[in-house]
Every structure is written in C-alpha cells, then in structure tokens.
Nucleic acid binder design. Structure first.
Lengths: 132, 132
DNA sequence: TTACTATGTGAGCATATATTCAGATAGATG
DNA sequence: CATCTATCTGAATATATGCTCACATAGTAA
C-alpha cells in the first residue's frame, strides 16, 4: 500500500521493495550526521589532517587558515560526534582521529570525484546544469 | 614558515608536514561537495534507494515522504553533481545511481556509526557534550 | 486542438549553520 | 599571589539551505 497524502505509486512494487530495503530512521540519521560533519571545508581539512597526525588548536588554525575560535567551535562539534579525541599535554591540547573509517571515507569520496571527473569533458561538474 | 596573521605555530614541523600532505584546494572542495550531498536526510534516502533500483520522481516522493517538488529540486542538485542519472520512459523519468562509490560511502559511514555506538554507554552520541 | 500526467523551475520563507567578537576558563610560570 | 598562554564558550550576525507554492514544460492521449 504505497500511498502518502493521496499520491499513488507509479510502480508500487518498486516502492515497497525500497521501503523494505531502507535503513531505520535513526540509523540513517546517524549516517547522515557523519556525512554532514565531513561536508564542510573547514571540518574536512581538520579531519583530513588529523587522520595523519595529531595537531593542537593553534596549529590547526594556522593550517586551515581560520581563527582559533572557529577551530575550537568545530572541534567541539566533531568531539560531540566522536569524530575526534583530545589529549592534554601541559597547556596545549592535541586532537586526533583514531577511527580508520574516516580515512576510508575520504578515500572513497576521492575515488568518486575521480570517477566523475573522468567521465566528463570539463572540470568542476563540467559547468553545473546537466541533463541525462 | 608556518605563520598566518601573526599566529606562530606551536609545532611548526607538524604544520608543515600537514600542509605538504593536504589535498589541493579544488580537489578537497569536490570531496566536500560529495559529503555535503550525502549530508541531508532527504538526499541520503533518495541516493540510498537509487543504489538499489531505479525510481521515478513520484515514487521517490512516496518513499521519502516529501513533496514531488522537493524531490525534483533535490534530484536537480544531485544530477548537477553527477550523483544520479535520469532516463525517460514515456512520461515518467527514472533516476539511477550507477557509481558504486556512493554505495561504498554508505557502507563506510555505516561502519563508522557502528564503531561509535560500540565504544559507548548510550545511543545517539551518548548525549552530546563530550570531552576527551 | 484540448486535456491530462509527470516532472521541472523560480521566488519567497523559515530554519540551520559557520564565523566573529568579547570574554571566560584552565594550566603553567614567575 | 599575578600573569601569561592555550583553549573554550555564548551571543550575534550573515549566509546557506530545504521546502512550499504557483506556475511552466514535455510527453501522452482523446
């Protein structure tokens, strides 16, 4: 019975199959949260760097090119979602990413970007508007 | 020479190593764009379903539970970034995801979520605010 | 042609989000 | 103690974003 607000399905079987294959709401939300965390240039740079070696707030600010405050806000965001860990060393606090899945996500996205670039005439998304 | 706006590095060597390992701005931006596309519940549901079988706009609207217009807007977004393709069949248009990297990204994010959940006392992010 | 169906589009709105600013906190040092 | 350093935080702001609404377009069928 694939119906919602009066809309009736064109291929009801396909809709029911998709509904059956769908992930539980809460689980999908956590996955989306993960992607969202990676979907910001500042956070992505932070995470990518931290998958290679630990860095403190100050050095992340220099590396990424934004204020220490901005870095700190983003680190709290990432800490709350367990994407980074921190360890204190005297007065400075070092952040790390010890979850290998984060590095894997970068690698897969990298492959995707290459894949898209290869199939196409020109760079970015070969000039946005695209049919077919 | 790791300096930016008067800030001097705490561990200059680490900053320079990170700078050397960093991805080119434009490339990282495309990776971020990919994550951003996946970092929305509506788009994630669309993409996840389409990695399994083609669906038309109407059926996606029913499946995801939003208006056909909203689906259409998101499909344009995804089409422009080459994350979905469309093929016309009479009056209805079927969308697909033929890039296996998209499915891999979901799988990796899924693993990450499991990893986070396992290491922790309670569910979501065990109640956001978190140190260490 | 006209009518119908499926999808696409632009404008407007309401919410989300990333940064800055000013100040607070925690540890180190004199 | 006071001072400095590194980090953190809340409020405010400016921008980005997702949806709705009304209408446009493309194909089908009478």
């Amino acid at each position: 019975m694939a119906k919602v607000e009066g809309l009736s399905a064109i291929d009801a079987g396909a809709v029911e199959a998709a509904q059956a294959a769908a992930l539980p709401e809460e689980h999908m939300q956590l996955i989306v949260d993960t992607f969202q965390a990676l979907g910001d240039l500042t956070r992505a740079r932070i995470l990518f760097a931290l998958t290679k070696h630990p860095l403190c707030v100050r050095d992340l600010a220099i590396l990424v090119g934004v204020s220490e405050s901005a870095i700190s806000h983003q680190l709290r965001f990432l800490r709350d979602r367990r994407l980074v860990r921190s360890r204190r060393e005297g007065n400075t606090i070092f952040y790390t990413v010890d979850d290998q899945h984060v590095a894997m996500l970068f690698k897969e996205a990298d492959h995707h970007v290459d894949h898209v670039r290869r199939g196409l005439p020109d760079h970015p998304y070969s000039g946005l508007p695209h049919k077919d």
